Amino acid sequence: MSFLFKRNPKTAGDLVRILNEQVVKLETTNGSERKKAQDEVSRHLFTIKTIINGEENPLNDASHGSQTETLTQLSQEIYSFDLMYNLILNLRNIEFDSRKIVVLLFNSLLKRKVGNRSPTVDYLLSRHKIVVTLMRGPETPEISLNTGLMLREAIKHEAVAKSVLYDPLFWKYFDYVNTDSFETSTDAFATLNDLLTQHKQLVGSFFSNDQIVSKFISGINKLITNGNYVTKRESTKLLADLIMIKLNYNLMTRYVNDVENLKIIMLILGDRSKNIQLEGFNVFKVFVANPKKEKAVIDILAKNRNKLLQFLGSFNKERNDDLFIAEKDFIIQQIQALPKIIVAEKVVEN
C-alpha cells in the first residue's frame, strides 16, 4: 500500500522539485532503488504531459490559475532547477515512453514566447552544456532519435544554430553520419542538413572562413566516397544545394577550383544508381559552367571530353524536365567547346 504515501505535488514548483530529485536518483542509485526512481520520474512526467496538452490540471493546488499561468510557472521552475539539463543527461535511464514526454516538454518550452523573446532560447544560450549534451546524442544510439528531435527543434532558432555550428563538436557529425547504425546515421544527417540549410545568412558567414571551408570539403567528400547508398546520395545532394546558394560563394569557388574534387564527382557520375548520378550531375554542372576554371580542371575535362559527351548524350534521356534538358544541353555545349587534346605520335628513328 506504498502508493498511499506517494507525494503528490500541489504546485508547479513542487512538481519540478520532486521530479528533479527523482531524476538525480537515476544517477546515484541501482537495482530496485533506480527502478523506483524511474517509476516516479515517469509518473511526474505524465503529469507534465497532462498540463502541456491542456487536460484537467492535475496539481492539487486549488488556487491554481489558467493553463497558461501554470505553464509559465512550470517553465520558470524548470529553468530555476536546471531540470531540462538533468532530464537530457539521464535520458538513457528514463523509460522509453517517458523519453517522448521529455521531447514534448523541451519542444513546448521552445515555443513559449514572452513578447518577442524566447525565454528557453535565452536559457539554452546561457546553459550551453544542454546543447552540447544534445549534440552528443548520436554517441548513445538508444536515445539518439530523441536528442536529434530536440536539437533540430532548437536550431530552428538562429542563435542556437550559431552556437552549434561554431562548437568544435559540430565536426563530429561527419563521423556520426558514418556510424554503423542506420537510424543514428540518418538522424545525424538530418541534423547536419538542417544546420547547413535553414539559416542562409549564418551559413554564408560560416563558409566565408577558408579554414572552415577546407574542413567541410574534407568531411563531405568522405561521406560522398565512403558512405552507403543513402549517405552518398544525400551528401551529394546537400553539397549541390549548398554550392548553388549565392551566399556560399566562397565554398562554391573553393570546391569547383580543386581538381581532386572534380575527380570525386566524375566518379559519382559513374555510380550504378541513377539517383546518385543525378545528384552528381548537379555538382558537376557547376564545375563545367564556371567561367574561371583552373587550368588543371580544364585539362581533366578536356582529357575526358569524348567519354563525358558519350555519357551525357544518353544520361537520363527519359527525363521529361525542361530545366534539366536545358542544363544538360548547355553542359554538353561547354564540353564540346573544350580544346581537343591531340596525342603526338612517337617518331621512330631509323
Rank of each mutant, 00 (worst) to 15 (best):
M1E: 14
S2Y: 11
F3V: 12
N8G: 00
G13I: 07
G13M: 03
R17L: 03
L26K: 03
T28K: 14
S32Y: 09
A37H: 05
D39Y: 03
D39R: 09
E40D: 15
E40G: 09
E40H: 09
H44D: 09
T47W: 09
I48Y: 05
I52S: 06
N60L: 15
N60Y: 05
S63I: 08
S63Q: 12
H64S: 11
S66L: 08
T70G: 06
T72R: 13
T72F: 10
L74K: 03
E77Q: 13
E77G: 06
E77L: 00
S80Y: 14
D82S: 13
M84K: 04
N86H: 11
N86G: 02
I88A: 01
L89V: 06
L91F: 09
N93Q: 10
D97C: 05
K100D: 12
V103E: 08
V103L: 07
N107Y: 05
S108C: 02
K113A: 12
V114H: 09
G115H: 06
N116E: 14
R117V: 10
R117P: 00
V121E: 03
H128S: 11
V131K: 01
L134F: 07
R136D: 04
E142Y: 06
L145K: 13
L149H: 03
R152A: 02
E153K: 12
I155H: 07
K156G: 12
E158S: 14
E158I: 12
E158L: 10
V160F: 07
A161K: 02
K162S: 15
K172S: 13
D175N: 12
Y176T: 00
V177G: 00
S181P: 06
T184A: 09
T184W: 02
L196V: 04
F207W: 01
F207N: 00
D210Y: 01
I212Q: 00
S214M: 08
S214D: 14
K215A: 10
F216V: 01
K222W: 00
L223A: 02
I224F: 03
N226P: 02
N226C: 05
Y229R: 12
V230M: 13
T231I: 15
T231L: 12
K232L: 05
E234H: 03
T236Y: 08
L239W: 07
A240V: 06
L242F: 09
M244A: 15
M244K: 15
I245Q: 11
L247C: 04
L251R: 04
M252Q: 13
R254F: 01
V256P: 00
V256T: 02
E260F: 03
N261S: 13
L262M: 09
L269F: 08
S273Y: 10
K274N: 14
K274H: 14
N275W: 09
I276V: 14
Q277M: 11
L278D: 01
N282C: 11
F284E: 02
F287N: 04
F287Y: 12
F287C: 07
V288W: 07
V288F: 12
A289I: 04
K293R: 15
E294D: 15
V297T: 09
I300H: 03
I300L: 15
N304L: 10
K307V: 07
L312T: 11
G313Y: 10
R319C: 02
D321N: 15
E327D: 15
E327Q: 15
I332C: 05
I332Q: 07
P339F: 05
A344P: 02
A344Q: 13
E345K: 15
V348N: 07
